[in-house]
């Protein structure tokens, strides 16, 4: 096989691995959010266990990128795809960790479930889920516009997070929830907000692949 063809196949393999990992991370985030909203301990446990598989995918992608750098000595667009691929895997892995943080917080909350404040997270979680979809689509379709849109979407998530925290602590000492419950809900908001930040990193990596320019979407 021509060396360039073999390299192209390896680059496609890298893309597929990243998409697979992206899909798994998105599912973990969805399950983690569902475990918070539905007080589902089994689901939270599954998210925690699944993180090992996400970490393995990260290492596998890193190994592939290192092998391609060592054996193909990539330049220009190829080099950008590989370097950005490594960064994408790191961001996805961190998003997976944040899903685990959500799941662990869900387990702590399930001891004394709170209905109303948890529901406040739902809109924010949906916005973050849309961001994850948009980020992965931007990568699959090499869509610079979709990548740039992530900045606005992240602003909206940040706004939701500020509102959530303000509402949680506006009621003062007479609120129905304990301070610890309110703090845990705020943590969940914080984890979702951080996931949004990592998705903007994905957008930045996509723009770097496409243009070679560095951008700041966050």
């Amino acid at each position: 096989m021509h060396q360039r063809q073999a390299f192209d196949i390896a680059l496609k393999e890298l893309k597929l691995k990243l998409l697979h990992m992206g899909g798994d991370v998105q599912e973990s985030i969805r399950h983690a959010v569902a475990s918070v909203l539905r007080h589902d301990q089994a689901l939270a446990q599954r998210v925690i266990e699944r993180d090992r598989e996400i970490n393995r995918q990260d290492h596998e992608i890193e190994d592939l990128c290192i092998r391609l750098i060592a054996t193909q000595q990539p330049v220009a667009g190829d080099l950008r795809r590989i370097v950005a691929g490594m960064r994408l895997a790191v961001d996805l892995e961190r998003m997976g960790d944040l899903a685990v943080d959500l799941a662990k917080t869900s387990l702590r909350l399930s001891a004394s479930p709170v209905e109303e404040p948890a529901r406040r997270l739902q809109g924010m979680a949906e916005a973050v889920d849309s961001m994850v979809s948009e980020g992965l689509n931007a990568y699959v379709n090499s869509d610079a516009e979709a990548a740039r849109r992530l900045a606005e979407m992240d602003d909206a998530v940040d706004h939701d997070y500020r509102l959530l925290v303000e509402e949680l602590f506006a009621d003062g000492p007479d609120a129905a929830e304990t301070p610890q419950q309110r703090m845990l809900i705020a943590f969940c908001g914080r984890y979702l907000e951080r996931i949004g930040d990592h998705v903007t990193n994905i957008g930045e990596s996509v723009l770097y692949i496409l243009t070679g320019e560095r951008s700041d979407l966050n």
Binding site: Q3, R4, P74, V75, A76, G77, D78, L79, R80, G212
Partner: peptide
């Protein structure tokens, strides 16, 4: 040139196409 060439022909040549 080796990270962000401007011309597609340069990119295609240095990436072995």
């Amino acid at each position: 040139m080796f990270t962000k060439p401007k011309d597609k022909r340069t990119e295609d040549y240095i990436t072995g196409r």
